[in-house]
């Protein structure tokens, strides 16, 4: 019953451009495959698609429901984009800002060879906060969604509801400073489509001001309450482009670092260790929160980390494939006063 999806006015143009670029890339053999989004099986969703022939190009879409961070598909535990004869394939990735950042950061961790990548840059204006809308609709079934201007119109049997997009946008998108993929000066023809050069990113971190103003005790309470519903399904880990370890620490059994239960201490250990692993690496795509079946807002942890890394080390991940994440890079002038801080 789904008639159309997407922001008719603006996104149609982007979508057409995208198909144009993709067609050209495939035609001129600049890439062997393209990873992008296609229409989802449910109204509020989209699906990733891998395209290797021109006839499938029209399946590519772009709208405000393209949540997934496609960079994840380039760091599988077994290499996937390999031709038995030709070797590694060149991949074009439909990239909003955070996908581009993820790709560039993964290159700094030797996961991606930027020479085998084409970033198809897209100017992103944010994705819809699916969970919030679903929560407000409640039990009723959504049959049709359209985003028109600033209105998200959700239709179902016997109901129709409008939501303002600027409010029902994903929280991370509201404060996003990197909407187009960053340009990499070292690899000039990496980016096709719309990319941008970024220098000195200024972020006020207004979204976590409220959290930051809490006392350590209140913060702890907030975090433990939010996490207490976690079922440890690891969807957040599976969606995260930075979670590519061969054997995740939670799955190790020699030694068993901590319990496998869903008791609060074990949940918290899982999330806090994962947070430490994300410090200076998270590209703020929000994939973890968007896939959480329990609707846990992990963005607060990630944004707080991003803020600490920015303030202490003046580092923004995913801009420069040669820059080392601060947790790896030791400089004599690194701020160290936090060692004495009680906070």
């Amino acid at each position: 019953m789904v008639k159309f999806m997407g922001l008719e006015t603006e996104n149609k143009e982007i979508e057409n451009n995208l198909r144009e670029i993709a067609r050209e890339l495939l035609k001129e053999k600049k890439v062997d495959v393209i990873i992008g989004y296609k229409k989802g099986t449910l109204p509020l969703l989209s699906q990733p698609i891998i395209i290797d022939s021109e006839e499938d190009i029209d399946k590519l879409i772009w709208n405000n429901l393209c949540y997934v961070n496609l960079a994840k598909y380039l760091v599988p535990r077994v290499p996937r984009f390999v031709d038995p004869e030709k070797g590694n394939l060149t991949v074009g990735v439909v990239s909003k800002g955070c996908v581009g950042r993820a790709l560039i950061h993964l290159a700094s961790e030797n996961k991606i060879n930027l020479d085998e990548i084409k970033i198809i840059g897209i100017p992103c204006n944010g994705v819809v906060n699916r969970q919030r809308i679903e929560m407000e609709i409640g039990e009723k079934e959504i049959l049709e969604v359209s985003v028109l201007g600033n209105n998200i119109i959700v239709k179902g049997k016997n109901f129709e509801k409008e939501f303002p997009f600027d409010e029902y946008m994903n929280d991370l998108c509201k404060v996003c400073k990197i909407r187009k993929p960053p340009l990499v000066s070292k690899v000039p023809d990496l980016c096709v489509g719309e990319c941008e050069e970024y220098s000195n990113i200024v972020d006020e971190f207004t979204d976590i001001e409220e959290f930051d103003s809490k006392t350590p005790k209140e913060k702890w309470q907030h975090i433990s309450e939010a996490l207490s519903v976690c079922t440890r399904c690891y969807a957040c880990r599976e969606a995260c482009p930075m979670c590519y370890c061969n054997l995740c620490f939670v799955d190790q059994n020699k030694p068993v670092w901590f319990g496998k239960t869903t008791d609060l201490p074990d949940i918290i250990v899982y999330h806090l260790i994962r947070a430490m692993h994300m410090a200076g690496r998270c590209v703020a795509c929000g994939a973890c929160s968007l896939v959480c079946p329990m609707g846990i807002d992990l963005n607060i942890i990630n944004r707080k980390l991003e803020k600490i890394v920015k303030e202490r080390f003046d580092f923004t991940s995913g801009l420069d494939p040669d820059a080392l994440p601060p947790m790896v890079n030791f400089k004599m002038e690194d701020a160290q006063e936090f060692m004495l801080e009680e906070d």
Partner: peptide, 11 residues
């Protein structure tokens, strides 16, 4: 078997 080759240890 555990190493995923991120190369951070090299740095």
């Amino acid at each position: 078997d555990r190493c995923s080759g991120c190369g951070m240890c090299i740095q």
